[in-house]
Amino acid sequence: MTSTIGPSTAAALLLLPLAGCATAPPEPQGLAPPRRPITEFLRPGETREAANPIAIYDPFERTNRAIYKFNAQFDRYVYLPVVNAYTFVTPAPVRRSVSNFFNNLEEITTFTNSVLQGKVEKASPTLFRFIINSTVGLFGLFDPASHLNLPRQDEDFGQTLGYWGLGDGPYLVLPILGPSNLRDATGLGVDLGTDWVLLQQLPSDVRDDIFYDLLFWGLWPIDARYQIDFRYHSTGSPFEYDLVRYFITKSREVKIRN
């Protein structure tokens, strides 16, 4: 599973206000402990948080969990049916080219953030990729650069902030966009803002075209979901929220280190 975070789901940001509805009733207090309580397993001086080997700082857990459920339901009733319809009506090579096209646009984000981290070894292949795929690859519809031993890199502003020492902050589950944290959500906002500013540089007759709207408000979010294999509750674990939280956080850690 890759992170569901990506500037490619710009349209979904519209739904952010929904987060406000997601408050959960408080759990009853003062319950008798079960037969095997956590206290049985704590070593001297150990906190309950420390006893959970995959704990992540998550002060808004109940709200996050409510949004996780909302996202799973949105996936089930809206997002996946749309993606399945898209898969049904398009042949595989077309979908491949659609993904290539949007991935090519994301090279701009990767390039900018590679530069911001002083990573020449990532910035230069990314620049060459963008030039080759935008020209020989027909506006990014094809990916000849990958055949020239120029593999795709992945950098974003969240990683840049992490690279310069900023911590994760609290774990956040963003509506539609999925698991994140305060640092990466901020980074995502900056990346999307940058994309928006860049897109404003296109001639106005392009931006006023209905095709432009369909591309960025329709096809982009569909392709973004199409590219992610993750399916909610396919782990078969009642602890899926905890597992996803841990693996997303660790995978971001690995990305920041690289």
């Binding site: 959960a24 956590i38 397993f41 309950r48 959970n52 704990a55 009642p238 905890d242």
Partner: peptide, 9 residues
Amino acid sequence: TTPLGDYLA
């Protein structure tokens, strides 16, 4: 919405 950290531990 129930936090499960303790039960997972």
